[in-house]
Design a protein around this nucleic acid. Sequence first.
DNA 1: TTGTAAGCGTTATCAC
DNA 2: GTGATAACGCTTACAA
Lengths: 353, 353
Amino acid sequence: MKMKNITISDIAEKLNLSRSTIDRVINNRGSVAPETKRKILDYIEKINYKPNRAAKHLSKRTSCTIGISYYLPENFAAQIRKGINDVYNELQAYGLNLIIKEAGSAEEQEKQIKQMQTEIDGLIVAPWNPKNLTELINEFIEQDLPVVTFNRDAPESKRLFYFGCDYFKAGRISGEIIEKITSKPGKIAIISNEDDLVGKKRVEGFYSILKESSIHKIIGPYTIYDHFGISDSYTDKDIDYIKKIIEDNPDLKAFYVVNQSLYLVAKVVKEMGKKDQINVIGFDLFDKFIPFINEDVIEAVICQEPYSQGYFPVRILFEMLAEDREIEKSEYITRLEVVMRENLKYYNDYHYL
Amino acid sequence: MKMKNITISDIAEKLNLSRSTIDRVINNRGSVAPETKRKILDYIEKINYKPNRAAKHLSKRTSCTIGISYYLPENFAAQIRKGINDVYNELQAYGLNLIIKEAGSAEEQEKQIKQMQTEIDGLIVAPWNPKNLTELINEFIEQDLPVVTFNRDAPESKRLFYFGCDYFKAGRISGEIIEKITSKPGKIAIISNEDDLVGKKRVEGFYSILKESSIHKIIGPYTIYDHFGISDSYTDKDIDYIKKIIEDNPDLKAFYVVNQSLYLVAKVVKEMGKKDQINVIGFDLFDKFIPFINEDVIEAVICQEPYSQGYFPVRILFEMLAEDREIEKSEYITRLEVVMRENLKYYNDYHYL
DNA sequence: TTGTAAGCGTTATCAC
DNA sequence: GTGATAACGCTTACAA
């Protein structure tokens, strides 16, 4: 049970040098004679020395504060929070501090980020409106304040990396599923709202699959606005609108819904007794969706590792800040998870830590 | 950037006591006057003191050695290894040592585990033959050597916990998928081999779904032995056998393959030009499967987080051994991942660390 | 029952 | 360019 590892002192002793000299070459600070440097480097290589992380953390006694900003639907935010919570519990002992700001609008988000600037050593942001935040992100970067994006990217900014899903590919996998489960020729209706950047990509990806050689005809996109899933904000007009699509298209075989109105579409399909004729496919796992997935009204949803989106950006950024981790990718793309009735419970609130 | 945290010394000073007394009540070792104990506990509660993990690790300088034993198909083992590798890199600095033994047979596995006994502080094992290892596991436990299982459980043993998938549920999700993608009535052929415990459960789960109200008729199980995916070990007889199933059953709509012969089945289906008429579903992601998934010969495979199966058991056991983590579950069940053409690349060799 | 002091492997601040 | 030396916050003898 006793630890027996090579330490800086061992190296110093072996090489007849002082600990500080070894430290200098390992962390290349201060100046060292090139000859001694070589000697030390060679020896370190040879014995495969690994610095003790605990000692490092203890000695540095440097804490870093990471700011997190997002404006996301509540159910999704809950999963993100769980990931953030776990990584915080894991790393706060090593000096991680977090400032979490949940915005209620794009404008508020911008304001909150500006406010954080002086208090943080790094920023993690899910930019609701990437274009508008690009400049701000670049400003931070200019000032040596690292910024990473998650959930939504700001690809034109100089952010260090993006952690999140590829929405175009998400559209493709849902297209694949619809093709596989919809064997009879007929129509597929797309539901979205135009000002939804994410939804737009999901639709494009979907088209890219269906275009290839489909026996189906795409109709729409029909517009239903989602209001972050607050059910009361859907009107009777929305319901009638969906009903009308179904009635007007007797050969309708599927709904492809890229926003949270998925819940409403499922409700109408179910109430009209059309669940066996019309396949419903959508995205993400919201509480409201769950009964419909269980009843096979919604055939499948595509998820994007929300928990990981909370956990990893914090961890990677912290390791960079506190342990000089190298960022090796500019994009960490999350898995596209196919969630159906029988594997639903594994995706609804699940983690191991 | 400077850390400013409450330490044991702070508490000691505030309460006019020595550091060791504080230490005694925090880790309840040694004896402390109940009155002082109360006082300390109250104060700690009040100021929300969290011990510094780095200091703890450094001071304890206790390393622990965990033994890992498995006998698994190579492709699967590769993913496991990646998880183990990541967690090792993460924790070796805190004193984790690993002894990894890959067995070539059930007997060898038993021998290897016995050999490890004296060198390890905990054992992680994927028991190829759970029944045979139950006694050995219990022996270890009697001797206060914690044992956990992964990938395959030994439910009748006293192992601390199991980390892996629920094979019955895995059968159910594949049943759900076959039902969803196979719209025309017809036959579904099951391929398995009887001595495969895992496959047996997958078949049971599959039946539990199909029984309910299927338009399909199940035929088989037909027996094809897999030899851990060494393709050369399949014979021409196996190929003829599959061909015969297809020829004898013109209304065959799907193959449900619970072992690695999935590759061979896909090959035959493809070569007979039946890929559009017959759906092929199986388990896990082996290199040989990949081209067939990409060509839509294999419609989907169900995976079980192989990477996590390497990563988490080690991490949880280490945290228990080195940091007195409480084990709160007796089963950590991995997700059932639906992998198809368009999300394949995310499951084939992917991780964030 | 309580206190003292040495040590864990780094980093940082001085001297030389 | 190099070497002492004092932290960092905790554990663990050992002494009182």
